[in-house]
């Protein structure tokens, strides 16, 4: 219930997100490539996934699609994290199967609140 997956290749960002999510009471599983992220998602069934889009190998969109294809029961919420350069790619992100997306830079102080807002948790 409190395990979440962060797929992010940038260690600094990963660290920041880990800080923020632990402070919000979540246990963080990290994956640094898309392939690992897909594996972890299928294996661990996390509560939700934060998915960086700019990834080496398969990108976040492809990883999201694979996760969605592997699912048989209800779906894991996936929130994309996009770079500033990808503004306006919302459609692509949503079509790939994400439930929402945040734009970098990520503010560690507000990120958990924003995640809860996307997941409909008050």
């Amino acid at each position: 219930m409190n395990r979440v997956l962060v797929v992010e290749d940038n260690k600094d960002n990963l660290q920041l997100l880990t800080y923020a999510l632990r402070r919000g009471g979540y246990e963080v599983i990290a994956a640094e490539t898309g392939e690992n992220g897909v594996e972890a998602a299928i294996r661990e069934r996390p509560f939700f996934i934060l998915m960086d889009i700019d990834l080496p190998g398969i990108d976040g969109l492809e990883a999201t699609r694979r996760i969605r294809n592997s699912e048989t029961d209800g779906s894991i919420p996936i929130i994309a994290i996009t770079s500033y350069a990808m503004r306006g790619d919302m459609e692509r992100v949503i079509q790939a199967g994400c439930n929402g997306y945040f734009e970098k830079p990520i503010d560690p102080l507000t990120i958990v609140g924003r995640i809860h807002a996307v997941l409909g948790m008050t």
Partner: peptide, 13 residues
Amino acid sequence: RTPLNSIIGFSSI
């Protein structure tokens, strides 16, 4: 921006 994100993020926490 990527390093800046780290600067801003880490200094804020």
